[in-house]
Nucleic acid binder design. Structure first.
Ligand SMILES: Nc1ncnc2c1ncn2[C@@H]1O[C@H](COP(=O)(O)O)[C@@H](O)[C@H]1O
Length: 781
DNA sequence: CCGGACTGCACC
DNA sequence: GTTCGGT
DNA sequence: ACCGAACGTGCAGTCCGG
């Protein structure tokens, strides 16, 4: 069926102005200028960074903070490439060992006590090979080869003699493995380490015990349950600082200072540990206990809940062995970032490998090398695939322990009511790139709507749910969807899973609204009668229908089923606008049309063959996205002055993590920034103090360096003040800013001015309002 | 009891 | 959402 | 090609002072 749209009445779908999109987005990153200690700037290549925006005035004072690196900021680098620091050793700090030790473990002290074989205490870099033992060393050499790693040869990961079958897993055993994982950046090695640990867990679990493995797995990926259940810790950096202060008897201020220096609360916890240690030996922590306590923290809410949470954390910290890294990982788990270079994807592979290896052992290790290698790979693929269809360890782990890899598929299937992993898209720099990749294949281009992903399910019981891109249950946010969708469900359509984009719409003009409008909607307990900004659903895929998964059907088929089983509800539910045109000109024209209609660009998808199946696990990125700002020299770019900097965290400790950029207002002879920060206030109020608030960068710079920055869009911001008053009371900020290059040839007063920014904002806004309205074709379906 | 500050969670 | 660095 | 880690804002829950 023709997808083409024809004009129709109300349809304007296009949206609106884009104007604003989200808040100033995040900035991207930047790069920092150099690292600290190095006397020599190694420089590197490009850096990048991002921009935020900023404020006004020209006055900038720089704060003296860390002079160390700051020195640099300037010019030097400038002239040369911006530097990225890469050296890895960029270590942070001063003396501290700060940031994560990268390649080799620097681990320090804390670990020393451990009986690890290799243990050497000092900071000496340790070669990895010495760090652990290969248990079955057959090859003469002790070195771990990639081939061995790829096969997940097991490695000795026990500490303190390990634990016995049926006993609870010591938490120290887990954190010991975390430490080993953190000490390397080699993926194969990480996989092997984790596999070895999980295999131990499996072998030492009693028959029928699925909790041990399940809890260990959850702690490894730092979660408590599937995301759609919505259980959250409700604790973060600040509460943790209080807890650390409380448990060590140190002052909150001291903790904060350490954090700034070291960039990682986990390390702060470990380093501050001794001051107040009680003498009696606490009972050692177990994986199960830690998991239970974390869950407890997550479940406490309401009055005085923060104190209760802090108490639990304090209790956990007190139970950590002083010589271990337990405290570090307890804290990082609570912060939600383990930062050991291990995340879900790697865990899935390790889990699959551990299961396969345990099956092999049960069978008497009969598989030869080749067979084993092949079973490992196949196992990983099966687990990945099954997990992507039913992303719940609560289901998958018991099933694996029960029926092994072979039984998994039958046991765990896509089922409405439980979100599946979404297909993702990869950026494309030119239309030519799209053609290259899809050469000779049939493909389609669809509008890339600017809203939020909405995976809509209808279960057998008739219940509707909406899940986000990250599998969170958003049902409470969209009563409007529940009101409209039933009208779109044709007779005979019982159960289904739709993949859609939910976009804000103005129901009187039928125009699509910018993402920013959607993001400002209420999120919880929304009642239809209170809704001011309505949502329109644009369906682009159908993953399940009437009891049958469609994941292994071609996109053409799925799309046809979608059109056949659903009907359009004007302004409420539509199918994504598509064009199957395949020439550069057609694509180019459709891209422009999409932008005019208020979309971000296009999504390009293969139509036939198994390459068009909905299998997020096969290739994490299967679709292509084409946006104007990706195209060379096409997006809106700005030349802005760097006026402020924010200290980076984690890996970026000791370097700037973000920058505040300003545009230049010649009339006022001052820099008007995108951000209204302190400075802005200061000016208004005279030079009062600076501590107002959050928008304040950690450091101010002399306005001198100019960077060219590219943005996807402009948005209105309550914080930043660039071009404030020219378009609206709010200032304008950039969406998805990224550093393009240094403009050595420009001075602060050559920077982009507020009127230019205001003009661009108007232009983008107009683009959508203007034209004819696009319409929604009803008979399309 | 109210409103602001502060923090965490969710998304692009 | 974008980008980078490491494998 | 993949994975993990940096990066930012707006709503909502809790705390806290008036
Ligand atoms: N027609 C479409 N097909 C697929 N995704 C779309 C479409 N329109 C909008 N999107 C959104 O675009 C997102 C992918 O783009 P990005 O997040 O930039 O990689 C998806 O998560 C969807 O929410």
């Amino acid at each position: 069926m023709p997808v083409v749209a024809r004009q129709k009445t109300l349809g304007t779908f296009f949206t609106m102005p884009p104007g604003a999109k989200a808040p100033p987005p995040q900035q991207s990153n930047l790069h920092e200028m150099w690292r600290k200690r190095s006397s020599k700037p190694k420089d590197a290549s490009t850096g990048e960074n991002a921009a935020q925006d900023v404020d006004l005035a020209g006055r900038t004072e720089g704060k003296p903070r860390r002079r160390k690196q700051r020195t640099t900021s300037s010019p030097v680098g400038a002239s040369s490439p911006p530097v990225s620091q890469d050296d890895d050793r960029t270590e942070p700090g001063p003396s501290t060992t700060g940031g994560r030790a990268k390649r080799r473990r620097i681990i320090d002290s804390d670990d020393e006590g451990e009986p690890l074989p290799s243990a050497m205490p000092t900071d000496e870099p340790i070669e990895e090979e010495e760090e652990f033992l290969i248990s079955d060393t057959e090859e003469g050499s002790a070195a771990i080869t990639n081939a061995q790693l790829a096969m997940s040869k097991t490695v000795d990961v026990d500490v303190d003699g390990g634990w016995k079958v049926g006993e609870s897993i010591p938490y120290a055993a887990l954190t010991h493995v975390f430490g080993m994982i953190e000490a390397t950046s080699k993926r194969l090695e990480i996989t092997a380490l984790l596999t070895s640990f999980l295999l131990l867990v499996i072998k030492r679990s009693k028959e029928g015990d699925t909790d041990s493995l399940r809890q260990a797995v959850y702690l490894c990926i730092n979660r408590l349950c599937p995301d759609y259940k919505g259980l959250e810790l409700g604790i973060g950096e600040s509460l943790l600082q209080k807890a650390i202060a409380e448990s060590t008897g140190r002052k909150l201020e001291a903790i904060k200072a350490d954090l700034k220096e070291v960039g990682d609360l986990g390390l702060v916890a470990i380093n501050s540990k001794n001051s107040q240690r009680t003498l009696f030996k606490p009972k050692p922590l177990t994986v199960s206990f830690v998991f239970t306590q974390l869950t407890e923290i997550a479940m406490t809410s309401g009055n005085a809940s923060q104190n209760k949470k802090i108490q639990i954390v304090t209790k956990l910290l007190a139970a950590c062995k002083a010589t271990s890294q337990e405290a570090k990982y307890i804290i990082r788990s609570l912060e939600g970032k383990l930062r050991i270079g291990l995340a879900e994807r790697t865990l899935i592979v390790s889990l699959a490998h551990a299961i396969v290896l345990s099956e092999n052992e049960k069978g008497g290790n009969k598989w030869n090398k080749e067979t084993l290698a092949q079973k490992l790979e196949e196992g990983a693929n099966i687990v990945k695939s099954v997990y992507s269809e039913l992303p719940s360890y609560d289901h998958v782990i018991p099933a694996l322990l029960r029926g092994g890899i072979q039984g998994l598929r039958a046991d765990c299937k896509l089922s409405p009511g439980i979100p599946l992993k979404p297909m993702l898209a990869k950026p494309t720099k030119a239309i030519g790139e799209v053609l290259d990749r899809f050469e000779g294949k049939r493909f389609t281009c669809e509008y890339k709507y600017d809203g939020e992903r909405a995976q809509v399910h209808k279960t057998e019981g008739g219940e509707l749910s909406v899940f986000s891109r990250n599998s969170e249950d958003m049902s409470a946010k969209y009563p409007d969807i529940f009101e409209q969708l039933p009208k779109a469900i044709k007779d005979g359509t019982t159960t289904f899973v739709l993949d859609c984009e939910a976009v804000a719409i103005d129901r009187t003009t039928m125009r699509l609204l910018p993402f920013q409008e959607l993001s400002r909607r209420k999120r919880k307990d929304v009642k239809v009668e209170d809704i001011k900004v309505w949502v329109c659903l644009f369906a682009f895929d159908l993953l399940y229908l009437n009891g049958e998964p469609l994941l292994h059907r071609s996109l053409v088929d799925r799309r046809e089923l979608l059109r056949k089983h659903f009907a359009e509800v004007t302004g409420g539910v539509h199918v994504a606008k598509a064009s199957d045109g395949e020439t550069t000109d057609e694509i180019q024209a459709f891209l422009e049309e999409s932008v005019k209609d208020g979309c971000e660009g296009l999504m390009v998808k293969m139509l036939d063959t198994d390459a068009s199946f909905y299998e997020p696990s096969r290739r994490s990125i299967n679709w292509l996205k084409l946006k104007k700002d990706y195209l060379n020299g096409v997006g809106d770019s700005f030349d802005l002055v760097v006026v402020g900097g924010y200290h980076g965290k984690g890996k970026r400790t000791a370097v700037y993590g973000a920058f505040l950029l300003a545009c230049y207002d010649p009339d006022k002879e001052i820099l008007k920034t995108h951000a209204e920060t302190l400075k802005d206030l200061e000016v208004a109020k005279c030079r009062a103090d600076v501590d107002t608030g959050g928008a304040k960068p950690d450091v101010w710079f002399e306005p001198k360096i100019v960077w060219e920055v590219l943005a996807a869009d402009l948005s209105l911001s309550p914080i930043y003040s660039a071009a404030k008053g020219l378009v609206e009371a709010r200032g304008i900020s950039l969406r998805f800013p990224r550093f393009i290059r240094m403009r050595d040839d420009k001075n602060a007063d050559d920077a982009t001015g507020p009127e230019q920014i205001a003009e661009m904002y108007q232009r983008q806004s107009l683009a959508n309002k203007g034209g004819k309205k696009s319409k929604i074709e009803d008979d399309f379906w």
